[in-house]
Design a protein around this nucleic acid. Sequence first.
DNA 1: TATGAATGAGGCTTCATTCAT
DNA 2: CATGAATGAAGCCTCATTCAT
Lengths: 214, 214, 214, 214
Amino acid sequence: MDEFIDIPNSKLSEKEKLILKAACETFSEKGYNATSTKEIAKMAGVSEGTIFRYFKTKNHILKGLLVQLIELVVENIALPPIEKILQNETNKDDKEIFKEIIIDRMNLVNNNFKLFKVIVSEALFQEDIRGVVYNKLISRATFIIDDYYEKMVRNGTARQLPSKIVFSSIVGSIFMFILKRNMDSLYSNVEQDDNIDKDIDFLIDIMFNGIGSK
Amino acid sequence: MDEFIDIPNSKLSEKEKLILKAACETFSEKGYNATSTKEIAKMAGVSEGTIFRYFKTKNHILKGLLVQLIELVVENIALPPIEKILQNETNKDDKEIFKEIIIDRMNLVNNNFKLFKVIVSEALFQEDIRGVVYNKLISRATFIIDDYYEKMVRNGTARQLPSKIVFSSIVGSIFMFILKRNMDSLYSNVEQDDNIDKDIDFLIDIMFNGIGSK
Amino acid sequence: MDEFIDIPNSKLSEKEKLILKAACETFSEKGYNATSTKEIAKMAGVSEGTIFRYFKTKNHILKGLLVQLIELVVENIALPPIEKILQNETNKDDKEIFKEIIIDRMNLVNNNFKLFKVIVSEALFQEDIRGVVYNKLISRATFIIDDYYEKMVRNGTARQLPSKIVFSSIVGSIFMFILKRNMDSLYSNVEQDDNIDKDIDFLIDIMFNGIGSK
Amino acid sequence: MDEFIDIPNSKLSEKEKLILKAACETFSEKGYNATSTKEIAKMAGVSEGTIFRYFKTKNHILKGLLVQLIELVVENIALPPIEKILQNETNKDDKEIFKEIIIDRMNLVNNNFKLFKVIVSEALFQEDIRGVVYNKLISRATFIIDDYYEKMVRNGTARQLPSKIVFSSIVGSIFMFILKRNMDSLYSNVEQDDNIDKDIDFLIDIMFNGIGSK
DNA sequence: TATGAATGAGGCTTCATTCAT
DNA sequence: CATGAATGAAGCCTCATTCAT
């Protein structure tokens, strides 16, 4: 329920990358089920038959994307900003570091928004995909956040609270922040004063100090 | 796609309700595309032909569900707790009221989780559904939250912040809180000390005061 | 390995009969694998989709034919001529009865030659089909022949020999007789003096008395 | 179909033999149509492309097997035992010679059972294959048997009967004898007292003297 | 000469939708 | 109104065959 997705040291061939890219594109536009292998083939610029040389099944393409996503996240999980925090040896303000992380993660999500969208949407209905997402990604993210939060508490920069609630607040806020930005840019016809840097400052401010007055 | 969704003051016939209920059930389990009309028919206990007497198209069933969702939310939008707040005349603590609202909304979501799941997952890929969701639900929710938040500011219980960031924080936190609870109950094999009441208190605490120490 | 072919009290619908007939026709001409369901559909005068309302799978069509064959044989297994012999109460000469049986069986085979051809050819390669053919048909036929032969021995009209060799001789002779007649009529361009009645007399003569002189 | 089968004095290259062997193996297991060229390639230990260097078409592989079969039979057709008979100069009993032939032929068939199976099964459906089988093999066998039988008649060891009926009896008996032995060994779970030598004696006994008492 | 990647036609099967009963 | 048989378009996938390397 988990290990049947083996994450190979996936050096993908050029063709495989082409196909996955095309699949990600079309899946994210029309959804997995509504996308035909013929469409993927056309977008990838290969014949339909070729797809099945590289992916036994249409569903295996999805799994391929999942593997990509996992690698992407895993590879990025121990990146500088987070290392810094875990090492906790800078003299930077906690909020400053937090901001770096948020920006870093936001970029990760934004740059791979389609990939996330495809995986999440299919995780809703495919048990095995869901299992992998939960075990490989969510539980890992939870662990990191918890670990980090714990450090903050020890450092005296955060107060003692149930970590799972803290998780919901932090991750939920960031997630919705990203999501809303994406949707607003699609739907809102009002021109936006898009000062993202300040926005993130506010977001962090709320995380640390809440919305309550003093 | 087909044509625009007109939200009738829909008094649904018994059969229509049966079908929508069955569709909601199966869609939420397998997804819209992966569900056949035959399955819906069987689960609803009607013939396949009957479905098409009430819904011109399979996609119209989905639209039917959307309409149901909208009515559900709209009907509940001016409910007592919110009224209280908007009237702002109680002597209750703001947090107390907030908690009531959260619990109320959480119940709404939990009781209709499948419906939400179906709509959200399809909104990801069907332009017209997405449009309706955004315009009828999200923008409305935004408006309400904004309005309420503004009151709090005026009352001096909240400090002045950009409302869209406040929205992300509040809605994101609550959303993730609900989502995580649902997922943990599915995947975590650790027995949970499920003290939801306290958890919500903490959630609100964080909203108002942040996670920062002092 | 045997019972998954359940022989229903197969009152076949008109459509099912049409499809099976068409399938038998095309299978026997081109073979099972080389026949497309589209061809069957066209020959049956129905749409391709219709086929799959009645037969879950292309292979189920074959199974359907097998069931037909079994019914055909089983229904015919206790027919008058054989009954007569088993009752053994006529004053007819054994050879006379034998001849009746052969003619009767030959007609059975000739009238359903295509059906036999299809089943036999597929039994060569499909394990489950082969199992059913062996258990339902061959072993049954063996039993009948053995039983009958034993009677002849008791009656003193046949001498004591190993029954399985007797089986090979009798069934093999008849089988090849039928087969050769069919093939000759296809390939031999010599006009045949087709005196089947006399031929059968000779065939039986050989069975009873061999080809040796005196 | 493609073109006529020319039976070259086929000295096959090593590769060709490998491919034909592999094809014979897989065809006999799964049937011609159900076997992919990729499977043949893998079993032959060559690449798929190589196959098509040696055989223009998948069907040409089958033809290649047919040629092999024909050579096999033709080469064996004038073998010592038969020569002996045709020369008719031994003092051995006719039955003795007959037995030798049967055993010899049986071995031929048994050793090349898969090849026979493949050819026969495809001859059922491929017109050109069938033609070759009939003209090159069956008519030739008929001729031999007829010739031999005629000699026996002249020698006084067999009585005068229509040769085509004699053919059916002899060939059918032997054929069924071999077939039944093969099937019984597959399906019968009863342990067999496999005294093949005696069995053949009985088979010949029946051929010469029939099953009738005295 | 040998390889195996690439192709695209075609096979089996599903399914939304229609319509006669 | 309700049914469910019929349809045929479209989907996923296989495979014989070609061809650049």
